[in-house]
Design a protein around this nucleic acid. Structure first.
Lengths: 210, 210
DNA sequence: TTCGGAACGGACCGGATCAGTCCGGTCCAC
DNA sequence: GTGGACCGGACTGATCCGGTCCGTTCCGAA
């Protein structure tokens, strides 16, 4: 009778519902305060700490889950942009907005706070590769300056998304304001050489290895 | 015999030297880790905690001092740019680099961690006014897009300067890379409307009031 | 209706961290 | 030589947080 996917009821259903609540709450809480305590997650989810720890036996486990889900969301945005065969710049722009809204900034700031595990590293690599593919496509269509790497983009988006000033909605507004600014500088028409070597994949992925 | 500026000797001289060391160390340490413990500052300064606390009776006092000095440095950069009557854009660009190197990012991230005091608020206001003056001058010379406020600049610089990835020198390199990118988007030639209302003085200065 | 037990919530525990204190030692001035 | 200012860093008391434990609640079967 276990794992059959049959209708759940009673406590079973509540458990399932709590599970989703917890992950959502964790994403929101850690996005606002990367070093938030577990009790904050529990409170936000409207759940006791006991229930929280029954599902995720350790804080690392929960952070791991949140990061992995975030990366999958970003990958989905990238794949969607790659599948889109309209204007390459517009696809790219949409991707960047999606990237920003996925709370990408969170993950990079979370990266140091727990021990990553190999699957997270793999996910980070794949995410990076997808973004680089998208960049190459857009650049070779002549719509994106060609001295920018996927790592550059990740850092820029992470920094912009990390801005925390006021209420969340106002912050989101500012994030998009500054993303729009950066996007203008990413067009090739504005190109003038940038100082220093670009960020590399290794510089970022090192954060996802113990 | 006190305060005459006469040559100091012995322990007196050591005390004076330690005083400078401590402030420098504090700036560096808090720049790297805004929530660093006092012991880290003492260690970096090569000084015992006792000496540290004899000079600054509380952590807040030290943070206060660091922030105030940082603001004065930024004000000096702004005044220098305003006094410079060469190419307005080049003055502006130099100012932005100086702003970034002053560890401007630090202060905003430090802003929440202690109780500010009225003189810091005054310094923040003056800093903001100076930057706005510089912006107005550059924009009315037609060299800067006119939908950007001083608060926008402060946030952008703070975010860029807040990037912490690798060794300090490499980080500085990346900071300047991304500042260069943003500077391109700030030129009026690249202007396309930005979404959302700009950041306001109040949004930033609220951080400097209890 | 009753009963067994699964899931719940939150009080609680042990360890770590850190701001701030205290004291024994050091080095200078006289 | 000696008094005392200044030094460093061990120490303290409070706070915070990850993780555990247990009394309570509610479901479903008999």
């Amino acid at each position: 009778m276990e794992g059959t996917g049959a209708a759940l009821s009673g406590r079973r259903r509540e458990a399932r519902r709590n599970d989703a609540l917890v992950v959502d709450a964790a994403r929101e809480v850690f996005a606002a305060h990367p070093d938030a305590p577990m009790s904050a997650v529990a409170e936000r989810a409207g759940v006791g700490q006991g229930s929280l720890y029954r599902r995720y036996r350790t804080k690392d486990e929960l952070l791991h889950r949140v990061c992995l889900e975030g990366m999958h969301a970003i990958q989905a945005h990238a794949r969607q942009a790659l599948a889109d065969d309209g204007d390459p710049w517009e696809s790219f722009e949409r991707f960047m907005r999606g990237y920003l809204d996925s709370g990408a900034g969170v993950q990079l700031s979370l990266a140091g706070t727990f021990t990553p595990g190999p699957d997270l590293f793999a996910a980070a690599s794949e995410t990076h590769a997808l973004i680089q593919t998208l960049i190459d496509r857009t650049a070779s269509a002549g719509r994106l300056r060609d001295d920018i790497t996927a790592a550059d983009l990740s850092l820029l988006v992470a920094q912009i998304g990390g801005l925390r000033l006021n209420a969340p909605e106002r912050d989101r507004e500012l994030h998009h304001r500054y993303l729009a600014l950066v996007l203008q500088a990413l067009r090739p028409s504005a190109a003038a050489p940038l100082p220093g070597p670009p960020a590399t994949a290794a510089e970022i992925e090192d954060r996802w290895t113990p």
